[in-house]
Design a protein around this nucleic acid. Structure first.
Lengths: 305, 305
DNA sequence: ATTTCAAATGTAAACGTTTACATTAAGGTT
DNA sequence: AACCTTAATGTAAACGTTTACATTTGAAAT
């Protein structure tokens, strides 16, 4: 080892980050803006981001719980000074809000956001195809009345999953009616309530597609309490394939999203933009999904040992 | 509004954070060091930290997936320059490692760490009492052979929960034997395997205490696959009370930890240390727990609607 | 030994704030 | 009107790096 390095270590020297940032005009930090940090989905995404960022010697600064447009705009402004780029996950944001709250040159990646043809890097889940696929699967079991528990209204994922559901129903021999569409907000509790409403519907649906796994679990709980067997009386499917989906009873038929890959991709894309600021070409990436048939739809009894 | 402010807004002025940090000698950022970012437990903790930090206009910089002592020491050094204080959650760290990798003046709060009487602010869960309580509860149902699925060996929470389990067994009419202690690592998968080993034990235990809820869920899954009814054939209890514990089938008897409060407390304590650097008195806080009896131990049938 | 080029070293300005201090202005008291 | 106190304003140094540029040094080539 070079003498200098040895001495540096002896003196416990470590460069002052603020001075370095000031001088170099970069912080080696990327910002993550989330609506909320709740449940396994988000911790998986962040895990992907964190490991990828660290591989490239970047740091992650996280700000969550922005549930109104005003809040997220404030967060944008506050964050923008301390990061080299931003990953934004929020249903509340649109292109004009971004332009008016961010320095124009700041690289941005939109994750699971509604992108109205605006020129931003964006990563989305293939919600439409995933929902279409799993609902088609439910229909293939012969179900005629398939209910959906919807996600938060303004959420683009929720909207696309609903669209996939509707088109799949229409394309199948199942019955299409908006009376089979029940509101939810991606939490277990909201789905618990929705499931009870579904049980009180006449004629009763024989299958439920929950717009995410957390809601599928909430619905399952309500069905159990009301002595309704899954998949015997009512079949059930979710969306996301969070780790726990394999382990619940019955195991959950769902749509697999490589959740942590979302985070990995977002960070990679952002770093690309940061490093090639000039000639970086913005584009939209859609992450594919895959239907995973487990017990809750009545397909199989799984043995995962 | 003052004219200056108006003009400032018009020009889209925002102060340069790096320059401000350099000049003020503080970053208004606190660092979080985690071993891993996995499952609901961590997202809850971070949520508590994030909201509390934001209330005080502080930012959170997060670094996870440090699973060896070398990694976490590297992370300590890298982080220390960019934050005003550090919250550390890691089984791999000890006082000397902290002292030799951090500037002495940097405020630190240890969360769920092993604190060997060293002079640090620390926050811990009352693991011993919680485990003792829930195991005593299982014993009160008349179980004589109560197994435990242990957590990661070097983890202090795991050690304390084991200690609580052992003391509770000895204090009850149940049978104490280390052959009822099965290894696990806090993941569903590890508990799945452990549960199968438990089923093959002769005589078979009639109750299982899993050292966290994720493992309880993993064990439950294995029991179901092997046609073992819970709580009919085997009673089950977990630890943490993650949100999903209410919603699984059967609902999970567990030990409630106000998880997000852990994060809230840690941040508050750290901010206190940052602001009162001189006369801040370090101390250890132990967060109480509460046994929550649900279905999986055979207590009641819950109706949560 | 002189020239040429590259490499090593040294120097100083810049990065954009904050803060401490000095100066000036203003207001109130005798 | 002279004096004191407080407030407002202005000035300059400091924060700890990086980087661009100038200078010196060293080595290779003629």
């Amino acid at each position: 080892m070079k003498l200098v390095k040895q001495v540096a270590r002896d003196l416990r020297y470590s460069p002052n980050i603020a001075a370095r940032s000031l001088s170099r005009r970069r912080t080696e930090t990327i910002g993550i803006l989330l609506p909320d940090l709740y449940g396994e989905f988000f911790s998986e995404v962040i895990r992907g981001m964190d490991t990828t960022a660290r591989q490239h010697k970047y740091h992650l600064i996280i700000s969550s719980s922005h549930n109104s447009k005003a809040e997220i705009e404030a967060a944008l402004r506050i964050m923008s000074g301390r990061v080299d780029g931003l990953i934004i996950m929020s249903p509340h944001i649109d292109a004009s809000a971004l332009h008016s709250n961010l320095p124009g040159a700041l690289p941005v990646v939109l994750l699971n956001c509604h992108v109205d043809g605006s020129n931003f890097d964006a990563i989305n889940i293939d919600n439409y195809k995933g929902a279409h696929g799993v609902v088609t699967h439910l229909a293939s079991h012969g179900h005629k009345r398939i209910a959906i528990i919807k996600g938060t209204e303004e959420n683009i994922d929720a909207q696309e999953r609903l669209r996939g559901y509707r088109d799949a129903i229409k394309a199948s021999s199942a019955e299409y009616s908006t009376s089979y569409e029940f509101p939810g907000d991606f939490t277990e509790a909201s789905a618990y309530k929705a499931a009870i409403r579904i049980l009180n519907t006449n004629p009763q649906p024989t299958a439920i597609f929950a717009s995410n796994d957390a809601m599928a679990i909430g619905a399952l709980s309500a069905l159990r309490v009301h002595n309704t067997s899954v998949p015997g009386d009512i079949a059930l499917a979710g969306f996301d394939d969070i780790p726990i989906a394999t382990y619940i009873t019955p195991s959950l038929t769902t749509v697999r999203v490589r959740i942590s890959d979302l985070g990995v991709l977002a960070v990679k894309r952002l770093l690309e933009a940061i490093h090639n600021k000039k000639e970086h070409a913005r584009r939209r990436i859609v992450l594919g999904t895959e239907v995973v048939a487990r017990e809750s739809c009545g397909c199989t009894v799984m043995h995962n040992d």
